[in-house]
Amino acid sequence: MNLATHIQTLGRGPGRSRSLSREEARDAMEIILSKTAAPEAVGALLMLMRYRGETAPEIAGFTDALRVDVQNWTGLPVALDWPSYAAGRTRGAPLFLLAAKLVASAGYPVLLHGWNSHQLAVASVRAGLADLGIAQAHTPAKAKALLQRDAIVYVPAEALHAPALDLLRLRDDLGLRSCLNTVLRMLNPADAPAMVQGVFHPSYRDLQSDAAEILGQTSLSVIKGGGGEFERHPGKSLTLMGLRKGARFETIVPELVNASRRLHEPTLPPVCLSALWHGAQEDPFATACVIGTATLALMTCDLEVDAAREAAQDLWACRSVRSAA
């Protein structure tokens, strides 16, 4: 089968077109990765899926194909997969990295992976990694060593699956995002038992939950997060969706503080991640964001709500002592 066949399936016209099955989507991605398809055909397929609205079987099929190429990352000692693929045009400091450090210090090793376009250097995820001493790994062996040492590591998308990143970056040529934003969030290269995901548009919460269920994921939390990341606004209630023990769930999580403001307010002094972590800067709102995000992540790792909240608060309270030890 060639890519034209799948394009015809998607674009025949009213009453004749349909979405791809999981198997067809996997075949389409395998053809794309083989580099035998014309660039125009690749763009046509991705934009037809964008126009129609990608489905959970299509996301699962694309993910199936990409996972073949990341099998050497499978088996790393990871408890929580934490993807970061938001564009981040309007966001401030990536506070979710502090939450990830808390989760790691609780004994749940975290694999961060991603790529973030359009971010200013001062607010970028990778600048935040350096600020907090979270190391990057470009090979599975290095990632394993860092996980054993720090219980947290970041793997750049270009090291994880460079061809998939090239497809993601077609947004620069096509002018629109493609389903690769969702697919890379679903990749879970280490096959971690738990995953967290943030989305910018609420409709993608269902899509990612459905795709994860098809892929056999057992624990997943999805929220509409700051800048599309898994980062909660502490002054707003939020809808938490995903999977628990393989079954779909949805619940409302109440606000943590009384605050009417944006998560990242440009009129206020910027947050320095390192200063906040070490206590040199005090920012109650940012602190509530970190603790609240860590609570949701710990819940994804099977802690009950109250236990997760108490653990996140205690970990934050002793972080300076822990980091200085």
Rank of each mutant, 00 (worst) to 15 (best):
D302Y: 05
P156W: 01
T63A: 04
N188L: 00
A307C: 04
I252T: 14
H161K: 10
G92Y: 01
S237N: 13
P266W: 03
P39D: 07
P39W: 09
L215V: 06
A259S: 13
R50D: 11
A308I: 01
H138T: 15
L263I: 03
V199D: 06
T74W: 14
E158S: 08
K224E: 12
P39K: 04
L160E: 05
S17N: 13
V110F: 03
R67A: 05
T36V: 13
P202A: 09
L20I: 10
R50C: 07
S21G: 14
L167S: 09
H161A: 05
F62G: 01
A247G: 06
G15H: 09
A162W: 08
M1K: 14
C289D: 00
P156K: 03
K101G: 05
L112D: 04
L238S: 00
D69A: 10
A127F: 07
L129V: 02
S274N: 15
I134H: 00
D210Q: 14
L48D: 13
L66K: 10
R50K: 10
K224H: 09
M186A: 13
T287C: 00
D81L: 00
L168N: 15
I252F: 09
L48P: 03
S323G: 09
R52Y: 11
E304T: 11
A79T: 12
R26Y: 05
R50Y: 11
T267G: 05
E229V: 00
G226I: 00
A297V: 01
R177V: 11
S237F: 14
R67D: 05
L303M: 15
V290E: 00
M195C: 10
L187E: 07
G15Y: 08
G11H: 06
L20N: 09
A25D: 08
A164C: 06
L170H: 10
I7D: 06
K101V: 03
D191Q: 14
G175I: 10
E213C: 06
L315Q: 10
D64A: 06
S323W: 13
A312W: 01
K142W: 05
W82H: 00
W316H: 05
A151F: 10
Q71H: 14
W277Y: 03
L95A: 04
R177C: 07
D166Q: 14
M186V: 05
G216F: 11
L80F: 07
L3C: 07
M195F: 03
N181T: 12
